[in-house]
Design a protein around this nucleic acid. Structure first.
Lengths: 187, 187
DNA sequence: CCTCATGACTGCACTAGGTGCAATCACCAG
DNA sequence: CTGGTGATTGCACCTAGTGCAGTCATGAGG
């Protein structure tokens, strides 16, 4: 028998998410999360830098996915096309892993908690920076890369919101439409 | 003689900014800020919701300025044109009130402090939402307004960075150039 | 079989951000 | 003279987060 139950990090994440869903982020203490996971408060902070991070434990997976798709996109594509393509594929990947309801409840906790929205913006900014770097490796100048990455993510956000509202819709099509709307908006 | 020195809020803000410049945000405690302003820690939290807010005390002024310019822009202008115009005027206003060095040192503290960068993203998001609402009052549909506001702010950020690097440059021209670059990037 | 380094986990003490509540007291209106 | 207002405060308290020293099963090597 193992000295400790396996996957402490995963247990903390699950305990946290269920508690957040039950009572809301603000009403849950780190000590409670750790308790439910069978660990100490101190151990929680060995696995997560702060209380907010546990909510974004799988967001890193998303970032890696975007970057991988971006790296493998046809080098002849323009910055914006490569970005939108990568995010489209990412969205499709995500929709196979996560159900629309899970995504929705997660989003509910997010929008209900200013502290988490703030951190979410930060994650998005970090992702943007990483995408700029990835585009840089494709020879895209930084300024252009910054605009393309921000535009791509704006389009993605809109498309995901649409998809949550109508899960039957075709995601790549939603991305195309949103991109066209953005183009018209800045023209 | 007044019971209390006037402008407690302003004193707190000044005390905070000078301490942040001297030793960096993280090395300063709220108690120290309150001390220097001749107030108690408890009073600090009567004026500011948390430690980060004191750094953005005048950001609200900027938001009001943007919205005023947006409301007074020619109604025949497109969403993106009105947005960029408003931000251009705002930038000009700001450059008459604040010196480039002050803006630069403020920016230095910002970029050196993850906690403040996070809050800054939040402020930008709130401003975006307010701009979307203002554009809505001009009859712009929400989706278009969202894209225009985000694009405008992306352009503004780039133009301000350029202006800080070369304060002699013509700000409206920097805005025009940045907007053109964005259009090319998403085309 | 012994030993030793490793590494996940823990307890403890401590700092600092943040809140609720009751009290203070100059100022001002009636 | 009196009572209300409002900025300020002290105090008790909670929670997030950190540094440090210690525990102890496991696994490699002698």
């Amino acid at each position: 028998m193992a000295r400790w139950e396996p996957d402490a990090r995963g247990r903390l994440q699950q305990a946290a998410m269920s508690l957040f869903r039950e009572r809301g982020y603000a009403e849950v203490t780190v000590a409670e999360i750790a308790d439910r996971a069978g660990l100490s408060k101190r151990s929680f902070f060995n696995h997560f830098a702060d209380k907010r991070e546990v909510f974004f434990a799988n967001a890193q997976f998303f970032e890696e996915s975007v970057l991988a798709h971006l790296a493998s996109a046809d080098p002849r594509l323009s910055a914006i096309d490569a970005t939108v393509l990568a995010l489209t594929r990412c969205g499709l990947d995500l929709s196979t892993v996560t159900s629309a309801e899970d995504a929705q409840t997660r989003l509910d906790v997010l929008v209900a908690t200013p502290e988490l929205r703030e951190r979410d913006l930060n994650k998005t900014a970090e992702l943007t920076a990483a995408m700029v770097e990835a585009l840089g490796r494709r020879g895209v100048p930084p300024r252009t890369a910054g605009f393309a990455a921000q535009a791509g993510l704006a389009v993605f956000t809109v498309a995901v919101a649409e998809w949550l509202a109508t899960p039957a819709a075709d995601f790549p099509d939603l991305m195309r439409r949103a991109l066209n709307e953005l183009r018209e908006a800045v023209a």
